[in-house]
Amino acid sequence: MDRWRTLDLTEEFVELVRRAATVLPADMRTAIAEAKGQEEPGSAAEGALETILLNVKMAEEHSTPICQDTGTPIFEIKYPYGVSTKALSEQIRKAVAIATQRAYLRPNAVDSVTGQNSGDNTGEDFPTLHFQEWDQDHLHVDLILKGGGCENVSTQYKLPDAKLGAGRDLEGVRRVVLDAVFQAQGKGCAPGVLGVAIGGDRGASYIKAKQQLLRPLDDTNPDPQLAALEQRILEEGNQLGIGPMGFGGKTTLLGVKIGALHRLPASYFVSVAYMCWANRRASMDVTLRDDNVEVNYA
């Protein structure tokens, strides 16, 4: 337990940031490659996906950012008993500043009152850190880099919604989420992945929606009703024909992941976190074995 207290993981966090910014996860790459095969040969949609795949390859080879907008770094940390979250917070803030110096991150933290960019990606509640103690004896850290273009098209609905004919049930959820995909058009850098949350208060709902983005594209929702809804929205979203970059085409969405929270009787929120094709996520496990610290990235 004392060992957790004296551990300095700053360089490991820098490496986690580097991986997230420069290496697109394998499931995303596979999905984009498969989508390219489904678009009309010679179409703008196919060309866009080809350029994206080439860019992903180059970014990894040169260890440069996949996208110049490296977004909001969101850290989800699960820690065993004995870890100091204060120490980890300090190490993570130091790590994002170092990663910015090394040009893995663009300076993205702007003071909302003065307009000043802090220059190192640290600021008030920046980066975003969520801590949760768990029963396991190792440390697990997930990181998402959430870009600004797709954050701007993310949205929240309050059901019932008369205009969309959306009541307080899963059919209502389907209606508003399809509307969100339509409203976004190509502006969130389609094809995107949707993280959706049903319920909660407004704040909890958005956080839950973003956490859905951590799920691998090929997992199955343990709730059969939500699993069916995910599949249906994925298929129907792609029938909208918006296509990569909004050029028109078969691929508008690469994944839909839905989670649910308990809600007040009076409220029924549906939050849609739109993530661009550059769905940059990386994770790290830290295990203590006697005197050794074992670090694994994924």
């Binding site: 860019n55 180059m58 040169h62 950012p65 190509g186 550059a278």
Partner: peptide, 13 residues
Amino acid sequence: FHAIGGAASLIAQ
């Protein structure tokens, strides 16, 4: 002309 959003490394090349 529409460039490919997010293709930052490729365009830099």
